[in-house]
Simulated assay, not measured.
Amino acid sequence: MPQQEQNLDADFDTQLRGLFQEATQNIEERETAARKGEENKEQEITRRVEERMAKSYVTVPDMLRPLMQGLLAVTRATGENTTILQKLDKTTDASATAQGGLPTLVRELQAMVDQKSGLNQRMFDALHQELKGYKDGFLLESVHKPIIRDLITLYDDLRLTHRQLQEAAGDSAKLSSEMGDKLFERLKTMDTNVEHNCEFIVEVLARLEVTMLPVGSGKLDKQTQRAVAVEMAEDPDNDGDIVRVVKRGFFWKDRVLRAEEVVIKKWKEGFLVALATPLPQQK
């Protein structure tokens, strides 16, 4: 039995040694395989790095080519900018010259516009005056003149009656009898009534835009007065002086409707000539 146990122990030791050796061999093989794998990885990494370096390797001309292209682009842009600046300078000079002459041009245009406006205004005023003259002439000749002429004739007759009544009243005032006083009062009343009628006719004429000319004095004005009689002047300086007014003159707007009829003085050298000249007939 002891011999058998010793044999069993010897076999067990042998098995343990075999297992240990086998384990050691496996470990060594694994370590060898691991080292080979690491070496292969390092070689692969080295190869890839070398390939990348080979691909990324650029020569000096290739490195400088983008820089040269950039410099050429900058030079070309600088030339274009210089050309543009020169054109801008020329344009600025031309604009400055044009702006310098602009106020003069504006003044000339303003003067032309003012001149044209003034011409248009004058033409319009002339046309307006001409049309107004046509209208006034039509109204005067077709509508107003017959009525105005009759009213002026009536005014002249009433003024003549007024003067005659004043003369008759003056003569009746010389009578000392009671009948003379009554006649004077009656004539005075009639004279007042006639004077009121004359004033009423003047008001009616004013509504028709007819006004009386101011009573003339001084020298004869041939535009607004007409001499119907003459008297001898004692002094040459009195030639043409107005002695008295026979009939009042009348205006219609800015027209002389009837000239004032007056008596004037004439120096003796022209007196006979004036007497020989026939008096103009009133229309």
Rank of each mutant, 00 (worst) to 15 (best):
Q225G: 01
N26Y: 07
D125A: 15
E199G: 14
N7V: 14
H196T: 15
D237C: 00
K188T: 12
F124S: 14
V243H: 00
M190T: 00
F271N: 02
V262G: 04
E203M: 12
P214G: 02
A54C: 01
T24G: 03
L8K: 14
E231N: 00
T46H: 08
S56L: 05
A229M: 08
L213P: 04
R30I: 00
T24R: 13
K116V: 04
R48W: 02
E167P: 01
P103H: 00
T161E: 11
D171E: 13
F20W: 09
A274M: 01
Q164N: 15
T59A: 03
I264E: 06
Y57A: 13
G170E: 14
L109I: 02
E50P: 00
D89Q: 08
P280C: 00
K268N: 01
E269W: 01
Q3P: 09
K283E: 07
E51S: 08
R207N: 11
A73Y: 00
E178H: 11
N197K: 11
L279K: 08
G240L: 05
D150F: 06
P61Q: 00
Y134F: 10
I84E: 04
L8A: 14
R35A: 10
K247L: 05
S172L: 12
L127H: 10
I152N: 04
T32K: 09
K55R: 12
E39I: 12
I45C: 07
T59S: 15
I152L: 14
D237Q: 03
R35D: 09
E29L: 06
E29A: 13
N7A: 15
K90F: 03
E178D: 13
E42R: 12
E141H: 12
Y57L: 11
L127I: 11
D221H: 01
K188L: 13
G100T: 11
S142M: 11
Q166I: 11
V143I: 15
S117F: 06
M53Y: 02
A206L: 09
E80Y: 06
L71T: 05
L127D: 09
D136E: 15
G170N: 14
L72R: 03
Q86Y: 05
D156V: 08
A94Y: 08
L208E: 13
V202N: 08
M123D: 10
R48N: 10
Q43E: 06
S217C: 04
D171T: 08
A259P: 07
G118F: 09
Q25S: 11
